[in-house]
Design a protein around this nucleic acid. Structure first.
Lengths: 157, 157
DNA sequence: AAGATTGGTTTCAATATGCAACCAAATGAG
DNA sequence: CTCATTTGGTTGCATATTGAAACCAATCTT
């Protein structure tokens, strides 16, 4: 489990809130995007993001502290490489859902944007879709949030 | 398309970046989480999030401005209700992927957390999983980011 | 050997945050 | 109907965060 040095969760029993505490920040999300695209070096992130160096430095430190990146200094202890941990690579689905929501909702028709394709076939990656075990689509209205210690409603399972 | 009044994108050609500009903030993500759970009133959000009133007020204004919530004042023009727009409800997948990542990576084994279930069956919602058209799983290493104006590699489609 | 690049840290002004006080309108209790 | 309480905010203020720029040592290039 991720173990940031300061664990002071906004809402400890909610996984959405814990995730938002760990990665709910614009620069953090974009660093993860770039990491998934194979970028590893400070200067690569800096060029790609156009972020101030002190902020990039801060966010990289947070990401290492939060168990999402590892920092591997070069031989002399300088010029580190930053790579995703398992928990970091596991953010692929999140970044993909951000991307697909952005494509659907933040671009005018015909406006160009980057795309993610299947490397082998060149096909665009299909839309993520919440579904039931049987494969049928699941809308937010069809779901129910059950909090810790809260009894399940009578009509279910 | 979403049309916030100040469009000053961090990285205009990247859907991840546009999405991060619009919803890449902890409080915004948690307000959307609560909205998907049916909360509509200022005081409901305030109680649920434990956020300062001025910050909640600011984020609700941003969300309305960004086309993710609508604000419907009561008869006398006070005590508004905030409801998700289509683009807002479309964030269900994103919030679900945040939740599932949090469940997998931000909780120790056996630690309790809230869960989302299928209202009808009571079954937990299955994991979101990037996949190909044929249903096979797709890992980050099997995908490729193609930027605007960048030619596709030779070996694909 | 000299110059450029990398991977940062430091400084400082501007901005954002969060706490607390305040307020008017609406609602609830008696 | 009256009074107290809740709701849905706004305002002020102290503190924390941000981002631009200068700076720097170590490395890499020529």
């Amino acid at each position: 489990m991720l173990q940031p040095s300061d664990v002071d969760w906004t809402d400890p029993e909610c996984p959405v809130a814990r995730a938002a505490d760990l990665v709910g920040d614009k620069w953090i999300l974009l660093i993860i995007r770039d990491s998934l695209d194979g970028k590893r070096r400070f200067s690569e992130f800096e060029r790609s993001l156009g972020v101030a160096k002190n902020i990039l430095s801060d966010r990289l430190r947070l990401l290492v502290d939060r168990g999402i990146l590892t920092r591997t200094p070069n031989d002399r202890g300088t010029r580190s490489e930053y790579e995703l941990t398992g928990a970091g690579r596991d953010l692929f689905t999140l970044i993909l859902s951000l991307r697909q929501w952005g494509e659907r909702n933040a671009f005018a028709a015909g406006e160009k944007h980057s795309v993610v394709i299947d490397h082998l076939t060149g096909e665009p990656v299909p839309q993520l879709q919440p579904h039931r075990e049987d494969g049928s689509e699941l809308s937010p209205e069809q779901t129910l949030l059950v909090k810790v210690g809260q009894p399940l409603p009578e009509n279910v399972k």
